[in-house]
Amino acid sequence: PDDLEKRARELLKRGKNPDEIREYLRNAGYDQSQAEEALKRAL
């Protein structure tokens, strides 16, 4: 898994919901489609 996916998994483990994770990834400078893909793979 790429770093983005790892980060998404990490956040899920900490109890973040998908919307929070999307926002976090966007704020971290990733584009929307990258964030969506990583989140899908992590779920």
Results as ranks from 00 to 15, higher is better:
Y30W: 08
A38V: 09
E20K: 03
G15M: 03
E20C: 06
L12S: 02
K40R: 14
D3Q: 10
A35Q: 04
A8F: 05
K40V: 11
E5M: 15
P1T: 13
K40W: 13
D3R: 07
Q32T: 13
R22W: 08
E10H: 06
L11S: 01
Y30D: 01
S33H: 14
Q32D: 14
S33Y: 14
L4H: 05
R7Q: 14
L25T: 00
G15W: 03
S33C: 11
R26Y: 09
A8W: 04
R26T: 10
A38E: 02
E37G: 06
K13P: 00
D3G: 09
E36Q: 05
N27E: 12
A35T: 13
K13G: 10
L39M: 05
D31I: 05
E5G: 07
Q32V: 13
D3I: 09
D31M: 06
Y24Q: 06
E10K: 04
I21P: 00
P18W: 09
N27Y: 07
Y24F: 13
E36M: 05
K6H: 11
S33D: 14
A38T: 06
E5D: 10
A35N: 01
D19V: 06
D19A: 09
R14F: 09
D2S: 12
A42H: 02
D3L: 09
A28V: 06
E36W: 04
E10Q: 08
Q34L: 13
I21C: 01
E36F: 04
R9K: 10
I21L: 03
P1A: 13
A35Y: 12
D31R: 04
Y24N: 04
L12K: 03
D2V: 11
P1M: 15
E36R: 03
A35K: 01
A28Y: 07
L12E: 01
Q32W: 14
D2I: 12
E23H: 06
E37K: 07
L11V: 00
Y30G: 03
D31N: 13
Y30V: 09
E36I: 05
P1F: 13
R9I: 09
D19K: 07
E10M: 07
A38W: 09
L43R: 05
E37V: 08
L25H: 01
R14G: 11
Q32L: 13
K16Y: 15
A28S: 08
R26N: 05
I21Y: 02
N17G: 10
D31Q: 07
D31K: 06
A35H: 02
A38M: 06
L39V: 11
L39T: 03
K6N: 11
R7I: 15
A35P: 01
R41G: 05
E5V: 15
L4T: 04
R41D: 04
A28W: 11
Q34S: 10
P1L: 15
K13H: 09
D19E: 11
A38R: 01
L25S: 00
L12D: 00
D2W: 10
E23G: 04
G29R: 02
R22T: 07
Y30F: 12
E23P: 00
I21D: 00
A8L: 15
Q32P: 14
K13L: 13
Y30A: 12
G15D: 02
L12H: 05
Q32E: 14
R14A: 15
K6M: 14
L12G: 01
K40Q: 14
E5C: 13
Y24E: 10
L39H: 00
A28G: 06
P18T: 06
G29Y: 02
Y30I: 08
P18Y: 09
L25E: 00
L11H: 02
D3V: 09
Q34G: 04
E10T: 05
Y30M: 08
K16E: 05
E37P: 03
R26W: 06
N17R: 11
E10W: 07
Y30N: 02
E37I: 09
R26C: 08
Q32A: 14
N27L: 14
K6S: 12
N17S: 15
D19R: 07
S33M: 14
E20G: 02
A28K: 08
R22A: 07
P1Q: 12
K16C: 12
L4A: 15
R22L: 15
D2C: 14
D2G: 11
Y24H: 08
K16D: 05
K13R: 14
P18S: 06
R41Q: 07
R7Y: 15
R9G: 05
E36T: 05
P1W: 14
L25R: 00
G29Q: 02
E20R: 03
R9W: 07
E5T: 14
E20T: 04
Q34F: 07
R14V: 10
E5A: 14
A42C: 06
D3C: 09
L43P: 01
L12M: 06
P18M: 09
N17Q: 10
Y30E: 02
R41S: 07
K40E: 12
K40I: 12
P18V: 11
R14H: 11
L11I: 01
K16T: 06
N27Q: 13
D31W: 03
L39Y: 03
S33N: 13
E5N: 08
R41E: 04
I21M: 02
E37T: 08
R22N: 03
L25Y: 04
R26V: 14
A8S: 03
L4N: 02
L43H: 04
N27V: 10
I21T: 02
K16H: 13
K16S: 09
P1C: 13
K13E: 09
E20W: 13
D19P: 03
N17H: 13
I21A: 03
E5F: 15
R7L: 15
L39G: 00
D31G: 10
L25N: 00
E23Y: 04
K13I: 09
E20Q: 11
R9Y: 07
A28I: 10
L12I: 08
I21S: 00
L12Q: 02
E36C: 08
E10I: 07
I21G: 00
R14S: 14
K40T: 11
D3S: 10
R22M: 15
Q34D: 12
L12N: 02
K16L: 15
S33L: 14
N27W: 09
R26D: 02
E23K: 06
R41M: 08
K16W: 15
A42P: 01
D2E: 12
L12R: 03
E10N: 06
E37F: 03
N27C: 10
D19Q: 10
K40P: 01
D2N: 12
D31A: 09
R7V: 15
A35F: 10
D31V: 05
G29S: 02
K13M: 12
K16I: 11
P1V: 14
D3F: 13
E23V: 06
Y30C: 09
K16R: 09
A42G: 02
A8T: 10
K16M: 15
P1H: 12
G29H: 02
A8R: 01
Q32H: 13
E10Y: 05
R22H: 05
Q34T: 11
R14Y: 09
K16V: 13
R41K: 13
N27A: 14
L11W: 09
A38N: 01
E37L: 08
E20F: 10
E5S: 09
E36L: 05
R7P: 02
K40Y: 13
Y30S: 03
Y24R: 03
D19M: 08
R7M: 15
R9N: 05
A42Q: 02
A8G: 01
S33Q: 14
L11A: 04
Y30R: 01
K13F: 07
R22P: 01
K16N: 07
E10G: 05
L43Q: 08
L39R: 00
R22Q: 05
L39K: 00
R14E: 15
Q32S: 13
L4Q: 03
Y30L: 09
S33V: 14
Y24P: 00
R41F: 04
R9L: 12
A35D: 01
R22D: 01
E10R: 05
K13Q: 12
A42R: 01
A42N: 02
D2M: 12
Q34C: 10
K13A: 14
P18Q: 08
L25P: 00
L25Q: 00
Q32F: 12
Y24W: 12
L11N: 01
E10D: 11
P18K: 07
L4V: 10
L25G: 00
Y30Q: 02
D31P: 12
L25D: 00
N17L: 12
S33W: 14
R7N: 06
L11F: 05
G15Y: 03
Q34R: 11
G29N: 03
R41A: 10
I21V: 13
Q34Y: 07
R14P: 00
D3N: 10
R41H: 07
I21F: 04
D3T: 10
R7W: 15
D19G: 06
R26G: 04
G15E: 01
I21N: 00
R22K: 09
Y24T: 08
N17F: 07
P18I: 12
Y24A: 11
Q34P: 03
L12W: 03
L12Y: 05
E5I: 15
R41P: 01
E10P: 00
P1R: 11
L12A: 04
L43V: 07
D19I: 06
D19W: 08
N17P: 06
G29E: 01
L39D: 00
E36N: 07
D3H: 10
E5Q: 10
